[in-house]
Simulated scan of single mutants.
Amino acid sequence: MRPFDEIIGLAVGRHGGSDAFERMLAETRPSPLHVIAAIPDDRILATMTRRVFYAGFSSKVIDSKWEAFESAFEHFDPARCAWMTEERLDELLKRPDIVKNGAKIKSVLENGRFVMELAAKHGAAARFFAEWPDKDYVGLLEFLKKNASRLGGETGMRFLRSIGKPAFIPTPDVVRALIREEVLSKSPSGRGDLLKIQAAFNQWSDQSGLDLTSISRTLAMSVG
């Protein structure tokens, strides 16, 4: 595993120099902690829902229907979503203007309750996510998988990145770079591999001062 400044050099060389590299990193740079912490609970639930529905569907289709989603789920008010009746769930399954997937629709109810629980304990759900230490990102992924609905794996990772939380995502290019750096020997397949990635990212972050998202993006840009 080489020092991260050498990996940055690879990425810079493959993407048109330092200025172009910095512009590409800036596109996905995480938000400051206070900005994440200020996200309203309804927007946390909305982002969870969008990511849940993206999984297995075209994001363009979901985006084109998003105004209808906002209306159908009462603008993702957590309390209203958390206590939807069976009759209300049945009505949603019949709506022609949203994606009629029963398990994913039910996840809005379950995640509404999850958001309310976080808000009750931390003052706001977003504050919980903002304050979770980046050096234990894998622990946060495990927490989401255990306590939220349909937010395991890459869906949870992309939810976190969507709210501005630093997050690595083992995309094919990132995995290729991690194998090149001998962090992994194959595509990650379980908790042990994620912990290996976390340890490498923590070391590279200490070396470079970069966040998990920027390290992830740099690794992806460093492969030919």
Rank of each mutant, 00 (worst) to 15 (best):
A46W: 13
T28M: 01
K121M: 07
R51A: 03
D134A: 15
A125C: 04
T213Q: 01
F57Q: 09
G139Y: 11
G9Y: 06
H75Q: 14
S187Y: 01
K121W: 00
D42N: 15
V35H: 11
R23P: 00
E74I: 07
R95L: 15
A38P: 00
E74C: 08
V99K: 01
E6H: 03
F168M: 09
P78M: 03
S31Y: 13
Q198S: 05
S216D: 15
A167C: 13
E154G: 03
D77T: 14
R88N: 01
A119Y: 11
R51L: 07
A72R: 02
D19H: 06
K106L: 07
L178W: 09
E117C: 06
I7T: 11
F143I: 05
H75C: 14
D42T: 14
A79I: 01
F53P: 04
E91F: 01
A68V: 09
G13R: 12
K135R: 14
R80S: 10
Q207L: 09
E110F: 02
E6K: 03
M221W: 02
R180G: 02
A82Y: 00
K165L: 10
A220R: 00
M116V: 03
E91M: 02
I169H: 06
G13S: 14
F4G: 07
G152S: 11
G209Y: 06
H122W: 04
E27A: 15
E181L: 10
Y54G: 07
S216H: 02
A200D: 04
Q203I: 11
G16P: 06
G17N: 07
N111C: 10
M116R: 12
I163C: 07
N147Y: 01
R88P: 00
L144A: 05
D206W: 03
E87P: 00
D206Y: 02
R217D: 02
L184Q: 02
L92H: 03
R51H: 08
D97Y: 08
A68F: 12
L10Q: 11
V99Y: 05
A26V: 08
F168W: 14
N101R: 02
S222E: 10
Y54C: 08
I169R: 03
V108P: 00
R180Q: 09
A38T: 09
F128D: 00
R191A: 10
L212T: 09
P172S: 00
V183E: 02
A26P: 13
M24N: 03
A37L: 04
Y54V: 12
G209D: 13
A26M: 10
S208I: 08
M116A: 04
P3S: 05
T155R: 01
W83E: 08
A177T: 06
G13H: 12
